[in-house]
């Protein structure tokens, strides 16, 4: 009998592996190319690129705002969901699992529409807030899995040692398990952050003026579709490349710390 094999498929943004530090790796080529292209277009093809760049610039800020607020909320939701998923309380466990199951079964775009219009109609919340809530609810489910995996990666001897000293379940979780799980949780959280940043482009369909929406606005005004989307794509690329480098550096630091 053959053993079942599992393969490891990464997320969209390639995280450079540590054995790959050379000059000619995919990451260096991409970042040099993308930054080079942006600079070239901005300075040597100033019309129309300068105009487009200035127009979409504040969209970048909105994109970051949505991303950062969403990831923070998603982490909070994720912690609760993760704790629920490892809980011995059947009702809590079932609720958390159902949440994850439902969210993962609905396309993000559909969820966005749904939460956005539901919230907008019922509570009259602000566009940006609705978008952040929608992204957080969705990513909270994925984050819940990250937390669950982090928590279950800690040896059960740690729980036993803590309980035998007299700590209750909650103290054991917050004083002993989570501080250790943090190290395994951080890198995947970084990856989710990058994935979320890319997915925020979906909120451009709602009335949120993020990078992509600003691009859509200027292109429909100026008919410079090709030029606009070239620039928008390059900007997304540069941001995610920088972030993915950040994650891989953090990962290296953490594993160094773990070896100490």
């Amino acid at each position: 009998m053959n053993e079942a094999r599992t393969i490891d498929v990464g997320e969209g943004a390639a995280i450079p592996s540590r054995s790959d530090w050379g000059l000619f790796n995919a990451w260096t080529i991409s970042i040099t190319g993308a930054v080079g292209a942006i600079l070239y277009l901005y300075f040597f093809q100033s019309t129309p690129y300068k105009r487009i760049a200035h127009y979409v610039a504040d969209g970048i800020i909105i994109t970051f705002q949505v991303t950062i607020m969403s990831i923070l909320c998603a982490c909070c939701i994720g912690l609760v969901v993760g704790l629920g998923r490892v809980s011995k309380n059947k009702a809590v466990n079932l609720a958390a699992s159902t949440y994850v199951e439902v969210i993962r079964g609905i396309p993000l775009l559909v969820q966005l529409f749904y939460i956005y219009y539901a919230l907008g109609r019922l509570l009259n919340v602000h566009d940006l807030t609705a978008a952040v809530i929608a992204m957080s609810v969705c990513y909270g489910a994925y984050m819940g899995e990250v937390f669950r995996a982090g928590i279950t990666s800690i040896d059960k001897g740690q729980t036993e040692a803590a309980r035998s000293l007299g700590f209750n379940t909650k103290q054991t979780m917050f004083l002993v398990i989570l501080p250790q799980a943090w190290h395994t949780i951080l890198p995947p959280v970084g990856n989710e952050f990058i994935a979320l940043l890319k997915d925020t482009s979906l909120v451009s369909i709602l009335a949120v003026s993020d990078l992509l929406r600003r691009g859509r606005e200027i292109s429909s005004e100026s008919f410079l579709y090709f030029e606009t989307y070239t620039l928008v794509a390059l900007i997304y690329l540069v941001i995610t490349l920088i972030l993915s480098k950040g994650v891989s550096i953090m990962e290296a630091r953490l594993s160094h710390y773990a070896r100490q």
Binding site: D155, G157, Q158, E160, A161, A162, R163, S164, L165, G166, V176, P179, Q180
Partner: peptide, 16 residues
């Protein structure tokens, strides 16, 4: 449990 100290085969010290 506070009155019952326990020592395990695998030590189980808190590494952090």
């Amino acid at each position: 449990r506070m009155e019952l100290g326990m020592v395990f085969q695998s030590f189980n010290l808190f590494p952090h």
